[in-house]
Design a binder for these strands. Structure first.
Lengths: 210, 210
DNA sequence: AAAATTACTTAACAATGTTAATTTTCCAAA
DNA sequence: TTTGGAAAATTAACATTGTTAAGTAATTTT
């Protein structure tokens, strides 16, 4: 059945073309310019064709979200060198901030936009695997910090959420234009890192208390 | 000039009607159901009329954002009782979380949606007064904590942003459906408060260190 | 009463996501 | 080779959205 194989390949190829076009629009023109019709223009098919490969637009945006996570994991390769779990945690936070400010559009679709989560809800596996993996990585790291006496033992989940919350809060405030209006834009990034530094500092101090 | 007065009153009245209608749609049906045409239906004028009272839709959404801040300040009246600045800070954080989870639509338009900030950019006074006031309140409180030895002296701005970042991060992750998929929904709110507790705890411990 | 200003509406434009109905394409069997 | 049928792709529309130019109606001023 060589014909069927070829047909399947063609189908996968169109699917890939659609995703490639959506990424191109996303990167070059931004989230709101990723429209069905523009994608159709690029791949030189009618808009309806897209609906033969994807249930709806959310499914395409979900893919951009996945791509963002791949990019993010790439950025975190530099963590491998760092043995000390607390320093590792610190670097992870810095990477997070750096990623958010360097790729705000990707960050947006990964952690702010509703569309990808709506796509998730329609899928067979409703789990948010990417978020799950990321949060689990953070949890393990914090558990390791506690094991080795770098962080006071306690509720790993609450501590993880606290730290994730802080970096996400800073990045998302920046991305959605809430920070630039309040702090000097020149030093915004520096201040964000100082906020993280402060947290790491008091974590460290708190365990060496009397 | 009684006639001019009456006309101005009528004009203000329509303006008020538009805002009332937008609030009604916003509260009863949610952000995305606040459309020019639905507002026009409610006030029984043509859609175009709305543009004689507001530059564009963003300006209307900006008003919802302002209303949200009013609601938030109302919720913070319970802070007046608390003399101890650290306890006050803690309560403020709890209020913030509570507000975000109780009024997610308002929180969204206050701190996540881009529209209100786009409206701001078109205004004569481009300052984000509400955010400014809120952040300044936080800064003063933290400065007071430092003064009275409840928090280690340091960069007030960085510490303020860290704390705001954390609570905003938690709330915005919850609102945009990133938390419910990762932690037990039953205990989500409890965990958020535990995260805040943890931060307050290590802040306290860090100043009583050796 | 006529002129001029103000208030308001009609009708449209240019997008958007999505879908029903139709046509085209292509492979397999007669 | 012709024909039948399935698969792929398109056309054309629907129902929305925000926004605006042009025109009408009402009201105030002269």
């Amino acid at each position: 059945m060589g014909i069927k194989d070829r047909k399947e390949k063609q189908k996968l190829d169109i699917r890939k073309q659609i995703l490639d076009a959506s990424v191109r629009l996303f990167v070059e023109e931004g989230f709101e310019h990723v429209t069905i019709r523009k994608i159709a223009d690029i791949i030189e098919y009618s808009p309806t064709t897209i609906y033969h490969h994807f249930k709806d637009k959310n499914e395409i945006l979900f893919n951009l979200h996945e791509l963002g996570f791949a990019k993010f994991m790439e950025m975190n390769l530099n963590l491998a060198d760092i043995a000390n779990p607390l320093l590792r945690l610190h670097k992870m936070g810095e990477n997070y901030i750096e990623f958010g400010l360097t790729h705000p559009e990707f960050y947006d679709v990964m952690f702010i936009q509703k569309a990808p989560m709506e796509a998730l809800e329609q899928m067979e596996n409703c789990d948010w695997d990417r978020g799950d993996a990321a949060l689990n990585g953070l949890k393990e790291l914090i558990a390791s910090c506690m094991e080795h006496g770098y962080v006071k033992k306690g509720n790993v989940e609450a501590v993880s959420m606290a730290i994730w919350g802080m970096v996400h809060g800073l990045v998302s405030l920046a991305i959605r234009d809430r920070l630039g209006k309040l702090v000097d834009k020149e030093h915004m990034k520096a201040t964000m890192h100082q906020s993280l530094n402060w947290l790491m500092g008091i974590m460290d101090e708190s365990i060496r208390k009397g």
